[in-house]
Design a protein around this nucleic acid. Sequence first.
RNA 1: CGAGGUGUAGCGCAGUUUGGUAGCGCGCUUGGUUCGGGACCAAGAGGUCGUGGGUUCAAGUCCCGUCACCUCGACCA
Length: 480
Amino acid sequence: MAEKQKQFVKEIADFNEDFPQWYTDVVIKTELVDYGPIKGTMVIRPYGYAIWENIQKQLDMRFKATGHQNAYFPLLIPQSLLQKEAEHVEGFAPEVAMVTVAGGEKLSEPYVIRPTSETIFCTMYSKWINSYRDLPLKLNQWANVVRWEKTTRPFLRTSEFLWQEGHTIHATREESLKETMDMLYLYRDFARDVLAMPTFVGQKSEKEKFAGAEATFGMEAMMLDGKSLQAGTSHHFGQKFSRAYDIQFLDKDGTHKYVWQTSWGVSTRLIGALIMAHGDQRGLVLPPVVAPVQVIVVPVAAHKEGVKEKAQEITDALIACGIRAQADFSDNSPGWKFNQWEMKGVPVRLEVGPRDLEQGVVTVVRRDNLEKSTIELQNCRSVVEQLLKDIQKAMYEKALNFRDSHVRNVHNMKELEQALNDKCFAKIMWDQDAECEALVKEKLQATVRVMLDEQPFDDVCGICGKKSDKLRVAIIARAY
RNA sequence: CGAGGUGUAGCGCAGUUUGGUAGCGCGCUUGGUUCGGGACCAAGAGGUCGUGGGUUCAAGUCCCGUCACCUCGACCA
């Protein structure tokens, strides 16, 4: 028995030895995703897509609550449109896929498959906007985009991925800056409350900012191997795009002005982040809010009198109060089911067997800490409801503790290297010099993830040791 | 594009050194016994060995070509 258990754990690679391999194994074996016929694409299977749907639902609610609306723009973009903003083209050119033939004829102008939709939004915005009364316009799009990446990994980097991209335009710089930050914080709160994932948010370096943006802000999450994953971005464009695409409005003072613009997005990468932030040796651990199945009811000895009926009854009662519950009546052995649903990360398991029925109880096991207990049958509903909330909270606290114990203030290159080798994020004072950034990358294979709005703790740059008036607290980490 | 690796049953692999009837485990099907942490017994089904050419009486195995995929680097949500 114990042998089989060990074998099972082996099935999903070794969590400690090779974390990326563990990750890939888990997403494939838990049927979240499969490789598509084209290299670098993935097929998101029902179980994985259900997570995405829950993420969508939670985000969409928050977007609507902050005055955004959804819309949809075309997949194909004429190449010339993409080329209007110089930095933007340059940034995306290496990774765009193009359509050159349609309707059996070679096109006079190739169509780009959107790598992102700034250009098409801008084109339409310039037609739609006349007056300050038309502003702000705050649209969001749920869509797929294509970026021909050289190396790929399911969810974390694929040639095609799903995301949401918000594109807003405003009459003033203050307002667009506020929008950029508001959305950044919206993402941070969403990650905390929905994904149970603590993040660092802050400004990206010049080198890492979005092609065509004036400033880019990012949200970085810590994975269980101490590496960082960019989980979301929010860009301030200033008037760069509005000048390139001629988006002007007539202001109150009677003069024409260019709009101020933002964009922000999160993608299916969030699913990858979830997995790498919470998983364990047994597989996935999903936060209840996004778990496709929140409660799995496993009958034990289902053929015995009343077991199946009771399991169904309990499941129905939970579904009736809005819990995503499911009963597993397949003819696998209970042990197999336990392991299977644990691997799939279901937060709560209820075991219903003859022994439980005799005593009028049900056995409950939580996925996050594997604690097992029994509850009175009549309290089942309310206990489970509370338990889901507790698990959500406990998962966040666990992730937060992990992160806080893996963040370290460092003052020089030596300490920085030590921190990275200890699988930690490093907080360091940085003078925003590109040479320092390049040095860290070359010597330590690490990058400046974000710059935080925190009090300086040194008066020199931790990398080059020089004084500077541009010192910021930076997070440096190895990253996915 | 640089460096490594892998293609044999649905999945994971052995077999290749030394050419000679295509194997194992899991899964799948059927019947039966089971059921509180991956059950057991029995009987089955399932393969042009990635692909093209060559050597040979004979190629999964040797030779030449080619394709695909994976991992790690440079680039990115």
